[in-house]
Structure formats: structure tokens, C-alpha cells
Design a protein around this nucleic acid. Structure first.
Ligand SMILES: [Zn+2]
Ligand SMILES: [Zn+2]
Ligand SMILES: [Zn+2]
Ligand SMILES: [Zn+2]
Lengths: 676, 676
DNA sequence: TCCAGTCCATTGTTCATTATT
DNA sequence: AAATAATGAACAATGGACTGG
């Protein structure tokens, strides 16, 4: 009885299998009709692509047409070709000179998305769909899967009844094979399954989630499948060779998430570093094998991503956060751009913008040098950040789709917030003493800034504001806040990118505003009056008025200018964090170099975008703009406070000391009195 | 009375604090003047350092000069650059290959004295001193530490009288806060101090030992500070996270004296072991954060030392004792190299001694390997055909001499066989799962063909035929064989040369024959009846005849047409491989483009030649022709089989579906049932 | 338990070749 | 033909996981 059922299932499966295969074949024949038109297109294509042809392209000749078949399953090839051309033009247009530097088949689209495997979409259905149109009678095609299928070959299919039968048989099959298992002819029980093979079934294919025919098989199968799912072949010992998942070459190990050969490893890293995106000149179907892997970068990179190489595993320079997002965007854009040819680069958006920043060279290493020094003739292209300093960083321009952009930004936000969180939580507990020796030295600002541990331990931040501040509280908080501030700046890629002088100028200029911001927000969070410090204390202008004469009225104004409006806004934590970062870069800093100014602007707009995203996320797009405006107003208030307090401080003694040529000596005395 | 004193002190401290901060800010402005000169230097530097620039160098621009600042604080930048260059050259010279291998930004100066913190010298004074020069009038800088400071801001400072007052007040302060405590505005007693905060003060800062203003405070303060000095925050329980004192990353524990992450721990140990000294390329002010810690080894190591990592805590010699000799030798070599660039290893002095004995390598540990790897080693020299890619190999033309021709063909044969061998051995082990997401998509033929990993893992081929095939076996084998087939085709230059349509047509048309060929030969090799699959199973027509009714008689004919003659031929493995390739191209494929047909013919004759060569090689020229003929006959048998099975498959349902205009929908269902 | 060292998979770096401009 | 960029094999470094006293 059971055997009978098995037989039926087999036959059925077999027949379907064969039928489908036949279909495929038919499919190929049906395409013939379309071939002719293609030939015509071919010549044209050749003409147009001639100038950018790669000598490597051996077979190429007529391959160009397939191009963007992936775009839409239902689109015509003709139209596709046209689309492609247009897209190509735009891109070349957009990217100006940079593009020319690369081999033609590389087109910069955008960044590569770490998580998204675009290739899947682009490559799938369309091409096959073409063949559906006509169905010539080439029924004579000789096709048949060998031996086993032959058994059931002559059986008429049972049509929809498959489901039922299949499901019964399903009990013997591994779960993950699901309905796919319907296509198999033999029902013989397997007396023996070598361990090395037993795991295969589980990993084979995952069944699609929705299909009317999917009636099949949930139950696991074959008792022989007792091995671990891992492909632990019997001889784990014997140095089993590994093969590159991309090109099949021998692999030395796992790289960026998959087994990869040296070449693919390097290729992937370079591509990610330089944030490249290529476009296939041959239709996106270039086989990637060891022999041909260098023929088409687009398909090679695509394959890298498809098999699971993780762009985020590439440690890029300065900031991982940024590059990540870009990568994502790149991938997505790629998806859309799908089309053609040259490589595309990262973000630069403005079309027909002048030759962007000439990329600087990073002499010594192969590294992607991220910063351009524009120092030279920098084109600047005017649009601020666009300058693209860091090459890949957050982009500026008109990215492909809003969604895409939004998505990658969201990642950046999360990344940034995560980093900030860690910094705010950082402590030096158990760190006992720092060295004591050094304190004989003068603590210059740079030294203090770069060596915050010389200033004070990183205590855990306690912004509860449970007690009035004492002298010590304020002193300690000042130190602690400065250390925190230094930690934050140091972690910011934008800051890192600057040169030393610019960094110092920025750090000095923006501490006061940031400190205001911190204490005000801590107070708001603690629901305390006045301002809260990092050590659990608070200061309120109205406490002990006789002891704290507020001659300049600053403490009162600080409430009006900052604290009260801040309370009304009810910012959430993320907003506070990002607003703080935004404020750091939001005002002009005197004496920055031109590069520094550029970085400053880039950072400003970057964090503004992030802030915007977070605002809109919590309150909706509409109120976001309003909210941003209000937040920016706060910055204005802070700036006022800073000026007000700053102007009352021009103490002659200080100046005298500073102006003294022998300042290091003199200053030493006073530096000791500084909070540091 | 007391309050009054406190107030005074507060105000005083506060004003000083602010003043100093202002000073710092001024300082930053004063530096502006110097910025310009720097810019100039920048361009020059770029030129000179261009070739060895690291892409990581983000801010870089003018940073390269500082280089050996550690050497001498008083040296000029210009000269430093030159020194650096020279040194670099020398090193490269001396060490030969070794030197070049290291990142350029590491320059060995000398060894690190366990007790001496060179970083202090190099980093401290110099940079800050620069700013002392000019003092521009940018007095409008808006700066002010927030809330608390604002209270005392407008107060004139009391100058040197601070000390006296401070000392009085000191009684209330913790000892270790010493004179630093002078700067704090509030005198309110703290009604409540959370335990977690109470320890902060004690650990804060150590006062310098000698300073004229240091008149302060030895007495402990605030009654609230009764906790233990250890930073034992209230909840010692709750797994308080630790943070690396160097980079801020999460630390696992204390290492070499400070909390350190794994990375900094290892970095420090390695640096000490190898006795390295690096030189910062960027001026010695690189921020060391988790994100950037690998950017500059010099600054990282410096920070390690600064925060208190103890080189002596690194156990060196002890265990290394045995290898000390070698170490010395190595050290000596280093010494000579002394000069430049890369890091130097150990210390031994004797200059310019010849490159001593390459020490043996202590392969397995990270231990300070003192040995230089010498050499490059043998070149393999083996003529191994291995060298050239299949692609370029066989030439079509009229080669010069017969010998040459023969020779080159032999190479081609070896090449091809090698490639095939690798393909047959290729596995996806360790590849765990491929992505699962995509499987919701329709798997078109192209997609399946170009992305075989979507079909199934590449399991190791097991053609032993040790067990009867089950349904699963056959299904899985079908997939595996298809993947194998795709891998093979993709690697063939002839295939690669075709355009997309031709490729698909060929791939579809020739799979069935090739599958027959594979399974038949596997069976022959395994000496099994019927046909063998790739997973260790076999199928035999006469097994369980009642279960496998062979209506079309194919299974019987398959034996007559293919299996039996194949067994008689006793082909060797190479012959089988090449015959398989030959078969792929040996029959006409419908609907090929004219180019495709040409390639097909070329490939056919090519592989025929190769096959001939192999046949004659093993059996002599004479029988070769006969053998070829027999083999070709097999092809004929396969073709028959393919037709026979194929013709019985014209199932109406399949066609209907295919012809439907809404094919994508309909087809989806059936494609799911395909083996892919 | 802590904190040394050890292992080693995975990453980055260098640079002779090779390809592209 | 020279200049420039990409490739990939060989090598060094990194850092997570682990071992042992
Ligand atoms: Zn590869
Ligand atoms: Zn391609
Ligand atoms: Zn660390
Ligand atoms: Zn540095």
C-alpha cells in the first residue's frame, strides 16, 4: 500500500520535473523569434558602447542587449534597452570626471547595502518572462533529465491532484525541502546515507511561502538524517579544501562572511572602501568563475553580495557608521540603476556638477583615502558637503529614492546613537589611580583634551539632580563634562577628519555651548529646577540667592533662553543626543582652515539630517520641521548665553599672563587653577 | 562667617576657572596666525609623502611632519620631514623585504623603556607652546562654562590671595582633591550623596608636587565622603560594565594594570614583546577611540602607556628564555636597521652587523618572532600547466610547429582537466545557509543557472552508489547535478564567449545529455548497476520493478544504448571528463545566433581535439581514432535517450500554462515544482 | 576569579604583475 | 610608450575565545 503511494508520488514528481525542464527548454526556443530583432539592436549597441569597451570582453559582441532585463518582468526588451541608455547617460553626466578614471564597465551608482541583496531582484524573473510570449512548435526538442526521471517520464501528469499525494508522502521528507520534493521519481528507502550527505537536504532549498501548489510536506524525513546540520563532513580533520563562493577558486578561509579567495576578498574590500558601484555592460548575467572573474566587476561584486559577503565586515577608516549607510544606499541604488556600464560612485548627487573633488591619493596604502584634500584646486563644486570629503560619507545629493535614503540614514542614526550611548556610559571604574607623575607638567589644552584621564576619572553620570550643588560638585562636574565632551568629539568621524589645529579650535569653541546643553537637558530629564550636573547635584538660580549673587543676570536669562523653551519641547533622548552633536558643529568656529570649515559644514548638515530624521520619526514629518526650528532656536539661546557670560570675563590679569612671552612659566601657575 | 568664606572661595575659583577657559580659547585664536604657514607646509608634505600615504589618514594633510617629534622637542618641522625621509630610506634599505612589509606609519625609534613614558615628552609641551606666540584680539569669542560658573563670572579675580583662602576652606575637602578644589562656586552642604558618587572626589586628580600656588589643602572634607576609595559603586553586583581605558571599548577586565579591551591588551603585549616603537605620522595627537584605534599605532601605544599600562607586566623573557639567543641576534639586526620606517624589533646594539641568521620561526604563537622570514621561497617552478588560465590557453590558429602545437595542446588538456577537477571538487562547506529570503521569488532558469547557490549547496560528490536511490536522493541529485553543470559551463571559455541567449539555449539543451553522461559514468566507475547519483545512491532499472514501471522502456534502452557500451570502453577519468565537455558542444542547439553556432563549432572541434589527444595518449595513436568513434557513438545513444524521454513529455497542462499571457502568475506555481 | 598567555580566524598591508588609460 | 590603476598572493596584525596557574 505504502509503496503504491510512493510510486504515485514518484511518478508525479518525476513528470512535473521533466515537464518543467521541458518548459525551460521550450522557453529557450521561443526566444528565438525575438532573437532577430535583437540582432539589430546589437549593432547599435556596439556602436554606442564601442568607446568604452573593455579589451577583456571576449565574447561580448552581441551580449549587450540583455541589460536591464531584471528591471521589470513584464517590460519589453526594446524599452529596456532605451531605459538603460538613458540611465547611463545620466550617470555619466552626473559623475563627471571621477567616472572617467575607472574602467568603463564600472558605474558608480551608490553605496552598497550591507543587508540587502539586490541581485536577487534584479536578476530573477524578467529574462525568463520574455519567452512566454510566443510558443513555437519546436516540440521536438530532445530533453530529458537522465535515469531516474526516465522512469516516470511517460506518465501523464496528475495535475492538481499532486498536492494531496505529495502531502502524504511528505512524511518522509526533510522539512525544509517542503514542496520542492514533489519532483522526484524514486521511492526506494535509502538503506544507507553517508554522513557527509545526510546534511544536505536540510540546507538545500527553502520553499517559498506562498504557492497554491505548495500543498506539500512539512514532516521531516529519512531517519538517516541524524547528523548535525553543519556541513561537517566525516573527515573534518583532513583540511578540507574550501572554495570561493564567488568564483569557485580555492579559498583560504572565510572572508567578510563567506569563503572567498584572495582575489575576491581583495576585490570586495577595495570596492567597499572606494564605495564603488559598477554596472554591467553585458546584461548582468556574466558568469563569475575563476577564469572570468575580472571581466565584469559589476557582476563580480553583485555575486559577492549575493553569496552573502558583508560590506559591514570591511573595516573602513574613520567612521564605520557612515560608510555603512552609504553602502546600503549604494546597494539599493544599484538595484534601481541596474542598467549599465560605468561604475558609479558614491554619493555625489548634483547632476552635471563640475568635476567633483579630485580624489586625493592615499599614497601609502591601498586604502581608500577618504579625505580629499581639496587644498589644491579643490573644485568644491559649491554645494557644501558635497565636497564629498570622506568619499563616501553621508551623502548629499539627490539620492535615488527617498525611501532608500531614509533607510540608510536610519541606520546611521542608530549607529551614532549607539556610539553616543556607550560614550555616555563609559566609566573608569576600577581604574584606581591614573598615573600621578604627570601632574607636574603643565596641562595644556591639547594635552587635557587628548588625555582626559589626566583631568579626572570618568565617573558614572548621575544626572538625577537630587541635591544642591556644592563647590566640589561644580568643579568635578566641569571636569567630568569636559572629559565627556572630549570623548564625544574624539569619536566623531567629522572631528577625526580635521587636522590638529582645527580640532583644537573646534573643541575650545564649542565646549561651553555643549556644556550648557548638557546641563540643561539633564535638568529637564530630572525634572529639576535650574541645571543638573553629572554627579547628581543641581544648581538653581533661586537657591541661596544671597550666596550666589547673579550680577550679570545670566542665571535668570539662562532659564528664559534655554531651560524653559527646552522643557516645552519635551525632546526625547535621541533628539537630545543628536541635537547636541548638531550644536557642536552648528556654529562657526573662528580660525578654521578651509578644510576645517568644509568638514564643519558637512558635519553640520549631516547631524542636522539625522536630527531631522529622528524628529520626524517620533512626531511625524509635519511637526518635524517645526521642531527643528525650535531646536535651532535653542541653539541661538545657548549662543547668547555663551556670549553673555563670556563678555564679562575679560579679566586683565588673565590677559597679562597670557600675553607674556614667558607665558609657559606664568601660565603654569594659573593653569593649575584651571579646572583641569 | 563660614558661608562668607565659602562664597569668596567660590567666586574666586569660579572666576579663575572661567578665565582659564577663556585663555584656552584665546589660545586657539592665537594659533590662527600660525595656521597659514602650516598650509604651505601641507602641500609640500603631500608631494613628498604622496607615494606612501595611507588612506586612513583622514585629517592628515599636514600631519606628516611631526613624525619624529618624539626624538627631539626642539627640532624644526622641516628638518623632521627630511629626517624622516632619510630614515625611511635607510630602513628599507637595510631590512630588505622585511621593512617594506610594514605599514609606513610605524617607525621604530628604539625600544620602549618599561619605566619611561616617552609619550609624555613628545606630546606635552611643544604643541601647546606654539600658541604662545601671537595673541590676536579675537576677544569676542563667546565662551562660558554653563550654569554654575555664571554665578561668579563677573567677579574680578583675587589673584594670588587665592592660596590663603583656599587653604582655609580646604578643611572641608578631600585630601586628594587638594588645591584643585579651589574652583567651585557652591558651598551648600550636600544633603545627600549617592554612594556611587561619593568616591569620585577621592580619585579625581592628584595635585602636582611643586607649584608656587599649590598652597592648598591637605585635610579631608565633606562628611559624606565615607565610602571606600575603590570605585565600588553601590551595585557591585550588577555586572558593571568596564571600559577600556585606552579606547573606550568594552573591557573584559584589567590587563597590564588598567581596564583594557582585548584589542588593546593584545596590541600592548605585541608591542612590548616585539619591542616596537612607532612614530605618529599625524603629529602625535591622534584620538584613540574604538573606531580609530587602529589608525595610528604610535598614538595607541602612547595612550596605553599614558593610562598606565605597565610594560613590565608583560611577561617576556621568562618564558622566552630559551629563545633569547635568537632574540638577541634578531635584535642586533634590528639595531642596524635602526633607522627608519618600520618598527624595529628588539634592542640589541651592534650596528651594521650583517643580517644574521634568520631565526627559526616559532610558528605557532604570536610570540615575538624574532626571526625574519626570509625569503620568498621557491617559485614552484613546476611547469605546471597550472599557470595559465584555461581561457587564454588553447589557441586556435596555426601554431608554428607540430611539436609546439602538440605541446600547447597538452598544456591545454592539463589545464582543462585541472579546472574540471576543481569544479567537481568544489563544495560549499561551511557556507551554512545561503540566504533564505530570496526563495520567495520565482526561480527562472537564468537565475537558477547563474546563481546555483539558490538551488542548493554544493555538496561533495559521492558517486559510490552504495545505496538505492530514494525520492530525495533523486531530487537532490538533480539539483546537485544542475549546479555542477552550471559550474562547468560557466568555467568554459567557449560558453563564456557566447551571448546571453545563446548561453541559455545551450545550457537548457545540453543538460539532459550531460546528466545522462554523468550518471552513467559514475555508475561505471562505481561498478554499479544502472546509474549512480552524486549523493551515493544509485538507480537500477531492475530494482523494484513493480514500483518503477518503465512504460516507455527507457530504462531498459538506457542500458543498451549507453551503459553497456560505456562499460566496455573502459574510459579513464580524463577521457570521461573531456568527452563530457565534448558532448556538451557536440550537438546542434536550436535557436543559436550565428555567432553562437560558430562558437559551438569551435568548441566542439576544440574538445574533440583534446579528447583525441587524451585518447591517443593512453592507448596510442592507432586505437585513438577507433576510440573516438566509439565515444561518439555513445553520444548518439545519449541523444536517442534524450529524445525518447523528451517526446513522451508533451503534457498539455504545461503548455497551457506556458502559453497563458498571464504566464508569470501561472508559471510561478509550476516553477515551484521544478527541481530548482 | 583574575589575569597572564595562546590560538587562530579574519582582517589589513604590501607590492610585483597585469590591465587600462 | 609612459603613466596610472587594479589585481591577488604573501605576509603581518588584530582581537575574540580560550587555557592555565
Ligand atoms: Zn573568488
Ligand atoms: Zn556583468
Ligand atoms: Zn581598547
Ligand atoms: Zn598618531
Amino acid at each position: 500500500m505504502f509503496e503504491a503511494i510512493v510510486l504515485l508520488v514518484q511518478i508525479l514528481i518525476n513528470s512535473i520535473l521533466i515537464r518543467v525542464f521541458v518548459y525551460y527548454c521550450r522557453d529557450s526556443f521561443s526566444k528565438k523569434a525575438e532573437t532577430a530583432p535583437h540582432e539589430n539592436a546589437k549593432t547599435e549597441t556596439n556602436r554606442s558602447t564601442k568607446t568604452r569597451r573593455s579589451s577583456r570582453s571576449i565574447r561580448q559582441v552581441s551580449t549587450a542587449q540583455q541589460v536591464s532585463t531584471a528591471v521589470s518582468a513584464s517590460t519589453q526588451q526594446q524599452s529596456q534597452d532605451m531605459d538603460f541608455e538613458v540611465a547611463f547617460r545620466d550617470r555619466a553626466h552626473t559623475f563627471g570626471d571621477i567616472a572617467i578614471k575607472y574602467p568603463k564597465h564600472e558605474i558608480p551608482l551608490t553605496h552598497i547595502s550591507p543587508t540587502l541583496h539586490m541581485s536577487d531582484k534584479s536578476q530573477a524573473g524578467p529574462s525568463s518572462s520574455i519567452s512566454s510570449a510566443a510558443f513555437p512548435g519546436s516540440s521536438t526538442t530532445p530533453i530529458l533529465p537522465p535515469p531516474a526521471p526516465a522512469l516516470g517520464a511517460s506518465f501523464p501528469s496528475i495535475g492538481s491532484s499532486v498536492g494531496g499525494i505529495g502531502s502524504q508522502h511528505a512524511m518522509n521528507m526533510p522539512q525544509n525541502l517542503s514542496h520542492w520534493h514533489q519532483a522526484g521519481p524514486s521511492s526506494l528507502p535509502s538503506p544507507f546515507v553517508p554522513p557527509s550527505l545526510s546534511n544536505l537536504p536540510p540546507v538545500a532549498l527553502h520553499s517559498p511561502g506562498s504557492s497554491s501548489i505548495r500543498p506539500v510536506v512539512p514532516a521531516p524525513q529519512t531517519p538517516t538524517l541524524t547528523q548535525s546540520p553543519q556541513g561537517s563532513s566525516a573527515s573534518s580533520k583532513q583540511k578540507q579544501r574550501l572554495y570561493c563562493a564567488v568564483c569557485g577558486d580555492t579559498a583560504l578561509g572565510r572572508h567578510y562572511g563567506v569563503n572567498a579567495c584572495n582575489g575576491c576578498k581583495g576585490f570586495f574590500r577595495r570596492s567597499i572602501w572606494k564605495n564603488r558601484t559598477y554596472v554591467c555592460r553585458f546584461g548582468g548575467h556574466c558568469p563569475v568563475s575563476k577564469e572570468h572573474r575580472n571581466t565584469c566587476r559589476a557582476c563580480r561584486l553583485e555575486t559577492c553580495l549575493r553569496v552573502g559577503m558583508n560590506p559591514r565586515a570591511v573595516q573602513s577608516e574613520a567612521d564605520l557608521a557612515q560608510s555603512q549607510q552609504e553602502q546600503q544606499m549604494a546597494a539599493q541604488m544599484k538595484r534601481e540603476a541596474e542598467e549599465r556600464d560605468e561604475y558609479i560612485f558614491s554619493q555625489s548627487p548634483s547632476p552635471n556638477s563640475p568635476p567633483p573633488p579630485s580624489v586625493d591619493q592615499s599614497a601609502q596604502t591601498d586604502r581608500p583615502d577618504l579625505h580629499l584634500h581639496l587644498g589644491t584646486g579643490s573644485f568644491e563644486s559649491g554645494d557644501g558637503y558635497g565636497a564629498m570629503s570622506v568619499d563616501s560619507v553621508y551623502m548629499s545629493g539627490n539620492p535615488p529614492s527617498l525611501d532608500t535614503k531614509h533607510f540608510s540614514k536610519e541606520r546611521t542614526v542608530q549607529n551614532t546613537l549607539m556610539t553616543m550611548k556607550q560614550i555616555f556610559e563609559r566609566t573608569d571604574e576600577r581604574g584606581e589611580e591614573m598615573r600621578t607623575e604627570m601632574h607636574d607638567e603643565v596641562l595644556s589644552f591639547e594635552r587635557a583634551f587628548y588625555n582626559p584621564e589626566l583631568i579626572g576619572k570618568r565617573s558614572r553620570l548621575d544626572t538625577s539632580g537630587v541635591r544642591p550643588a556644592s563647590i566640589n560638585d561644580i568643579l568635578l562636574d566641569f571636569r567630568r563634562a569636559f572629559v565627556l565632551y572630549a570623548d564625544i568629539l574624539i569619536s566623531l568621524p567629522e572631528f577625526y577628519r580635521m587636522n590638529h589645529d582645527d580640532r583644537m579650535a573646534l573643541a575650545k569653541a564649542r565646549f561651553a555651548p555643549y556644556y550648557w546643553w548638557l546641563t540643561a537637558n539633564w535638568a529637564v530629564r530630572a525634572n529639576a529646577q535650574g541645571f543638573c550636573y553629572s554627579n547628581g547635584s543641581y544648581f538653581s538660580a533661586d537657591m541661596k540667592p544671597q550666596v550666589f549673587p547673579d550680577l550679570s543676570g545670566i542665571s535668570e536669562k539662562s532659564l528664559v533662553l534655554l531651560k524653559e523653551p527646552l522643557e516645552e519641547l519635551q525632546l526625547d533622548e535621541d533628539e537630545v543626543t543628536l541635537a547636541g552633536l548638531f550644536f557642536i558643529f552648528a556654529d562657526e568656529v573662528p580660525n578654521l582652515s578651509s578644510d576645517g570649515c568644509r568638514y564643519l559644514e558637512e558635519a553640520r548638515s549631516h547631524y542636522q539630517e539625522l536630527l531631522q530624521l529622528v524628529c520626524s520619526r517620533s512626531r511625524g514629518e509635519l511637526s518635524a520641521a517645526n521642531r527643528i526650528a525650535n531646536i535651532t532656536t535653542l541653539l541661538s539661546g545657548i549662543t547668547n548665553l555663551t556670549y553673555m557670560s563670556g563678555e564679562s570675563l575679560e579679566l586683565p590679569e588673565v590677559f597679562r599672563l597670557v600675553e607674556s612671552p614667558d607665558w609657559t612659566q606664568e601660565l603654569r601657575l594659573h593653569q593649575y587653577q584651571s579646572p583641569f
